[in-house]
Write a protein that binds this DNA or RNA. Sequence first.
DNA 1: CGTAACGTGGTGAGG
DNA 2: TCCTCACCACGT
Length: 533
Amino acid sequence: MYMCVCMCMYPCLFILNLMIVIKQWCVHDIKIAAWLLNPEKVPETLADVKQIFPLDQVTDPGDACKVSSKISSLENLENFYSVIKDQLKEQNLFSLFINVEVKLIPVLSVMELRGIKVNKNTFLEEKKILQERIQQVEKEAYKVAGRKFSINSHPQLRQVLFDELKLDSKLQKITLTTVNNLKSTCEAVLEALKDYHPLPQLILEYRHLVKVKSTYVDGLITHIQNGLLCTTWDQTAAVTGRLSSANPNLQAIPKLPVCLTKSENQSGTAKRPEQKVLRIRDPFISQEGWSLLAADFQQIELRILAHFCHDEKLINAFRGPNHSDIFIQLTSLWLKKPLEYITSVEREKTKRVVYSVMYGVGKVRLASYLSIPENEAGTVIENFLNRFPGIKQFTKKCITECKKTGYVCSLLKRRRVLPHLNSMNHVLQMQAERQAINFLIQGSAADICKSAMVEVENEIAAHTNLHARLLVQLHDELLWEVPDIELEATKCLVKKVMEDTGRLLNQQVILEVPITVSLSVGKTWGGMTSLPP
DNA sequence: CGTAACGTGGTGAGG
DNA sequence: TCCTCACCACGT
């Protein structure tokens, strides 16, 4: 094993560009180390590092040079690293750095080099279908507006909607644009107006389709090279420790099919003719003789919440033989109804309440999710928290602890400093409290998911008969390309490693709840079929 | 005066 | 009112 200290993973790894070499290198990246010490402020150059960590004992690295391209600053790197390493150790971050972040670098670089196979023709077909539908909607819009106008222009639309059709008279209050105090043509206004005239609905539809086409069809096509889409993984972009993907962002490809036909009012749903839909993930495919394998941590954030809460009811819901649909069980506990009488509506409602509590989403947002008055949403949250007292106690205790130290720590000791926890400004303080809870859950989930990537990759590499290639990470889901004949063996391996929480947490923490993984397989990303547990 | 370059707010995809 | 990234229109 070679060791190398560097700044910014990309140049170092891509100059080498030989996977075998990369795999043998242990890259102690100062940028990542600095990000662990303070995820809010990521240095791009050694000069930035110097500014963030004024280190007198280190010799001057010179002016703001792009370190990546300067071999002459290698000595300074060593000096910086020795100081930063001490800080990592002081703050209990060294283990996370060495055991997770550093080991992840070669995994990510190999993923970047590899890319994911796509069928360009499928993209082009989607493009054509969207193009036609957009023109259709546009034409229809001009018809109901009574004249042609520039549909993309907010000022012109404003003129048509409010000066000509006088639609603002239907509303008691109209939102004004923040900049010029003009009548807004924003989503919410159009939504409120759509019952009075067909134009707003058509504009909404038009904007949606244009967005889908430009972002997920045209946008992705421009990134195709040799039939592959290669993203850039950024290890230091997210304060919570999550990975992020850019150019293109493969973590935000629509999962649900996009509707092409008019979304008629749902009331008369008698035999709806076949809905025309577009599955945006369909062009993503595996190579000949291979399949795509996806492994999904089931409700990982909720399980982490249960672990922290020590709430007996919550924890027990995850234990036992049948804990796959946790939300049905939570609904049952919450509403005191037998499992078999729980409707899908209630289940969905519970899900939203749970995530609202977890992410710190307020009453207003929850009210809009559930389509109920605000005060009722407040009662719903209150009732839920009373049913699971552990959640409330944990939140309180956690915030009190954080206020003493000024920072939060995740399961693997990732940390985020939140100066506003003790702010005199009430708004800022409340915000910091939500961020603290959110960091604990989201950051811990990120720890587990990153660790899973490292461990599964190691395990696959240790089995020389297996050739699965990790393609994409979607926060709580990993996607591989696997030779068809190795599918069975790979499925077992992946599930075994990902559900082994002791291994994932480096034996540092014992989780109070099991973590389960669901698998699905398919020849395209759009059409994966889930496998029985 | 027209255009390029950049920043911002709104929206929406993912988790 | 958690955390990301991409696109658009619009203002400077």
